[in-house]
């Protein structure tokens, strides 16, 4: 009896889930083989990573701090995909949000209870402004947002380097390449983890509810899945595209705001730590589902934290990045393979 491979239109959820699990396991196995070839003992390293990450509240707090920007940037990318827009510029919007929030913190006087909400708003607006030009170019001239948002990342990165080492350089002279410590900060609620974490969770729930339980969310779902169908049903595709892309930018801006106001406390070059790009991975792992961003961001945070542990063992940061890349690679393959089944005959 011959066997054939058959493609099915969509994978059953259990198979899709199993494929995800397999992808992560395979990525770790591949990484383990590479590490073994480099002369490390992968099992011992794995045990150490697990113990350091989950064995102490310090490890968990580190993960909790890393997960905050990942939730925001992952959500930003996922939101863009709802309308079929690829926001590769969460990195730039992160910087723009951090920049705008820092500006408010440094130059607007007032009590923290007033200034922190202002910084929140400024962060969102900063991110939205950073995606405004790509948005309008896409909406009115059909310019591919993939390129425009990506290129603006470099502008934002260099802009923040410049202000942090130039006009906004710490006047006290104690820091060489950052602004002064911000006079306002997001309070902590568990060790070093600040209130950005619950806020991120709430934002995720709000966005998820917006898509699931509003008329607007329904229209965006249709328009993002098939613009032709939106046109057929008389839905304003362009308006939805603009609103959703600006929302995506604003959410990425919030990532920058919380990073500078809750974690780093100073604006400096390289503050984004690639969180904007990692957000793309988070969104892919979450299959563009807002709720799915939460576990995906948590997984990514654990991987990043493991990377920090591995670096203390003399493994380079490139190896760690390679492991995250492997997970994405296997996930993409797994998602595709989940849609095949083997049949007899």
């Amino acid at each position: 009896m011959a066997y054939r491979i058959q493609r099915i239109p969509s994978a059953p959820p259990s198979v899709a889930f199993a494929a995800r699990g397999m992808a992560i396991v395979l990525a770790l196995v591949t990484a383990g083989i590479v590490l073994a070839a480099l002369g490390f003992n992968p099992l011992a390293l794995g045990w150490q990573v697990l113990r350091t990450t989950f064995g102490s509240s310090y490890g968990l707090e580190d993960v909790g701090l890393l997960v905050i920007p990942l939730i925001f940037t992952g959500l930003a990318v996922a939101v863009g995909q709802k309308i079929g827009a690829q926001n590769i510029g969460a990195e730039g919007q992160f910087y723009a949000g951090a920049f705008a929030a820092t500006g408010v913190a440094l130059f607007v006087p007032g009590p923290t209870a007033v200034i922190l909400p202002l910084m929140f708003v400024a962060g969102a607006i900063g991110g939205a402004i950073w995606i405004l030009v790509p948005t309008l170019a896409r909406a009115y001239a059909d310019v591919n947002e993939l390129i425009t948002t990506l290129l603006l990342n470099f502008v934002a990165t260099l802009m923040v380097y410049w202000v942090a080492t130039g006009p906004w350089l710490d006047p006290s002279g104690r820091a060489l390449a950052t602004t002064a410590r911000l006079p306002h900060e997001v309070p902590e609620f568990w060790g070093i983890v600040h209130w950005g974490l619950p806020v991120a969770g709430v934002v995720v729930l709000l966005v998820a509810a917006l898509f699931a339980f509003t008329r607007w969310g329904y229209e965006v779902r249709i328009a993002g899945s098939n613009p032709q169908a939106a046109r057929y049903a008389g839905m304003p595709f362009r308006r939805h595209l603009i609103v959703v892309m600006l929302l995506s930018g604003a959410i990425a801006g919030l990532a920058g705001m919380f990073e500078v106001a809750g974690t780093v406390h100073r604006l400096q070059g390289g503050i984004s730590n690639n969180f904007g790009y990692l957000g793309i991975m988070v969104a892919v792992l979450a299959r563009s589902s807002p709720i799915g961003v939460l576990p995906a961001a948590a997984l990514m945070a654990v991987i990043l934290n493991s990377g920090i542990v591995l670096q203390t063992q003399g493994i380079t940061v490139s190896t760690v990045l390679a492991i995250t890349g492997l997970i994405l690679f296997y996930t993409a393959i797994g998602d595709e393979l989940a849609r095949y089944r083997i049949v007899r005959g």
Binding site: I222, N226, A233
Partner: peptide
Amino acid sequence: PEDRLHSGLAPALSITDNSVIREY
């Protein structure tokens, strides 16, 4: 429509989503 799959429906979305496109 002539091309039901590409202009009358959003193929990747659910049957529910597609059924209510006129009355949502």
